Structure formats: structure tokens, C-alpha cells
Computed example of a mutant assay.
Amino acid sequence: MMFDLPEDVREVQQMVRRVANERVAPRAHEIDRSGEYPQDMFDLLRELGMFTLPFPAEHGGMGSQLAACVAVEELARVCYNTAYLLIVQWVPFGAILFGGDEAQKARFLPGLADGSLRSALAVTEPQSGSDVAGIRTRAVREGDAYRINGQKIWSTNSAVADFVLVAAKTGASDSTGEINFFIVEKGTKGFELGRKEDKLGARGVPSNALHFEDMIVPAANRIGPEGRGFKIVMEAFNQSRPIIGARGVGLAQGAMELARDFILERQAFGQAVSDFQGVRWMIADMATGVEASRLLVYRAAALVDAGKTGTELAAAAAMAKRFATDTAMQVAQDAVQLFGAAGISSEVPINRYFRDAKVLQIIEGTNQIQRNIISNTILGRPRTSTRGPR
């Protein structure tokens, strides 16, 4: 690795790498095979005190997005699902930290920090994924509370969460300015957990549909002022996006290492598979993509740690997420090719890396949306035509 990590971050890297190799890697295949929530891995992360890593010292963390990225990278190198356990905890933590009021912070952040509370996010709906402004879940003000009706899909971690951050429209127009997030606690009347998805990858952390029928949520659980909370939370999401890229770096690194070890042991046509020029070039391209992804991710994380916000951070984070996750998919695909027939066996780990990599290109903002963010910072937003399609 060419990036010179600060000493405290390098210590985190060494610790997480050791734990990943010794305790996480032996569980990775079974977590993926069974699709069951890995409570033991959650307990391990809690034992290590990793849930606050990117957050300020007053919340028990290092205040280092770079350290968080390094930790996720090392875990994702051996087990995508265990790395995911950190991220599903960090995104709501960040949303409440940056967008919540003091009462909300006091009520929820200590539990998220020590692992006694688990959380989830609910934005996507059957008719609107990337088109966040198109969500139909509505929150209607009634005195000191809101009545919420609607549904969500792909709410990851909601089956085990103590509360869910639910995006709902508080106004009548179809714009993100009319959206707020609400803290909806487990057991709230009118809140129903729906069907669990049988997923291609990311199988160990459950994703469920959610249904809200005349669900009453206190106004005190709304994050940010009405009509402005969405923007506040989205800025928090921008700050967490480098972590998603870090997961791509780790996955790609792990896939490359598996391919390397496999071809070093194989013979074909009277010579080592690793001696064929075409194979060597594939490994060279993998290594280059991984290193480029790592540098983009670390740069974006460094911008967060330097206090950067707005378009500069949004573009850097989008580049890191897009490039790292596309690289993870390409590396995993080429690694499967190098494994040959063995690569399509469910008993061989590279199969899992291939499936998990595809998930990364879609979640936390599709890579097409990341391209929109990047191009908008360079060209401005596209002009809307007043004419119909040709």
C-alpha cells in the first residue's frame, strides 16, 4: 500500500486485520450460506469498541473517517457481512449526531455507541429507489405528533433494530425539501415488519419490507426542522459514503488474494498457471484497480476528517464509491474466471465475493447516481427541456 497512514490509524488497521483473520474469516462462509444474522460477529465488534470509530472522542470514537475506512476494508477483505454490521450502525449514528437535537443525541447516541441499541434506515419504496423525491410515505402533523402511512422495502437491519430512521413526506410537493426523517422505535403501534428478502449477496444482514398504517410518531422524533431535515441527513450520508467505497476496496483486495493463491498452486499445459502472460496481466490490472480505489477512498475520508462539506466532499465521496465498487465487481468477476469451473461452486469463497460485489454497485446510491453527482459538480445540473420526448 502506497498511502502513508498515521500511526494511530495503522494501529487500528493491524488490530482489525488480526481479528479479521483469526475470528471473522472462519465464520464468513457459514454466515453467507445460512443467511442468518451473525450475532456473534456483532458481539465481537461491540467487544472491540468499534461502533464509534469515526465519531468524536466525546462519543467514544477516534473522530477519524480514515480509521473507519481502514477498519471496514480489513473486515470486508474476509467477510462482507461483518463489515456491514459497522455501516448499518454508523449511518443512523451520523444522521442523529449531525441532524438531531440535544435530546435525541442524549437518548440514542450512547446506546448506538456501546451496541446496546441497533438501528436501520428506511428510504426505498416499491416505486422509488434512486428517485428519493418520489417516495409516497406521508407524515401528517397532528398536534405534537405525526401520523405516518406508507411502506418501505430493502430496509437493511430493520429486523433486529431497536429503531428505524424512516423518510416521509411532510408536505404535498414532490421535492426532497418536503421530506424529513423520523426515529421510529420498535413496538410503535401501526409499524409492521414485512417479508425478509432472499438476497443474491449481503445475505447475513437481513433486509425487510416495512409497513406503516396510521402510525403515530412524536414530533420530538423528527430529525431537523420540518422541510429541512432531509438535507441535513443527506450531508451526514455524504460523510459516510467513503466507508461504502472502503468496503469495495476490501472486497476487491480479498478477491485478488484468493485468485493469486489459487493460480500459484495450479498447473496447466505443463507450466504454472501464474506463469501465463495473460493471467499475469489480469492480476496486474486487479492490483492497479485496488490501489487506485484505495487512494480515492482514503482521499475522500481525509476530506471528511479535514471538515470539508458541500460539493467538494460530495464529488470526492461519489468518485470513491463509484470507482471502488465498480472495481470490486471487475476484480471479483476476473477472479471467478481465474478459478475456472471451481469459481461457480458455492463451496468456493470466490463465489461469495462475486455476489457481494454486485450488491455494492447498487446500494447506498447506485453508481449511476454517483455519476450524476460527479457530473453535476463539473457541468451543473442538466437543464430541463420544456418539450416532450422526440
Rank of each mutant, 00 (worst) to 15 (best):
E58D: 15
A202G: 15
V123H: 08
A272Q: 12
V336K: 01
Q267D: 15
L66F: 12
E213H: 12
A168Q: 05
A314G: 12
F51C: 04
F339W: 05
A252D: 15
Q239C: 08
V160L: 13
A103M: 14
G248T: 03
R266P: 09
R10M: 15
G343R: 01
P38C: 10
I373S: 06
V336E: 00
E226K: 08
T124Y: 14
D162E: 12
D4K: 13
K189W: 08
M62F: 10
N208R: 01
T384E: 06
A284C: 07
G100C: 09
E30S: 13
A324W: 11
A28V: 08
Y298P: 10
P38S: 10
A202N: 10
R352K: 08
A145W: 06
A139E: 11
T366Y: 14
V233H: 11
G177M: 05
A342K: 07
Y353M: 09
V297Q: 13
Q39D: 04
R383G: 02
G245W: 12
A20S: 13
R241F: 11
K308H: 06
P6Y: 05
T384A: 01
P218Y: 07
M41E: 12
T327K: 09
V91N: 14
A287V: 08
G94W: 11
L121Y: 04
V140Q: 11
D8V: 12
L44A: 01
E192D: 03
E192L: 01
L86S: 08
L75I: 02
E125P: 00
A25F: 08
A252I: 14
G134T: 03
L45Y: 00
G343T: 03
G134L: 15
A341M: 14
V160D: 06
D114F: 08
D4I: 13
A314W: 09
V164T: 15
A314S: 13
I87N: 05
V205W: 00
V24H: 01
A317S: 14
D261Y: 10
I223N: 04
F163P: 01
N149F: 07
A122T: 00
R18M: 08
N376H: 09
S64R: 07
K358P: 00
F3K: 07
A161W: 05
M286L: 09
D40T: 10
F191V: 06
A220V: 11
G227C: 05
E178C: 02
M234F: 10
G194Q: 04
A335R: 02
P382Q: 07
K321V: 11
N21S: 03
I183L: 11
I283W: 00
A306L: 06
A335Q: 05
L112C: 03
S130Y: 12
T137N: 06
V359Q: 02
A292C: 15
Q104S: 15
A68R: 03
I153C: 06
G248A: 02
T309V: 13
A335W: 10
L193A: 13
N372A: 12
L75M: 00
P38D: 08
H59Y: 15
S274P: 10
C69L: 09
E364K: 06
E11V: 14
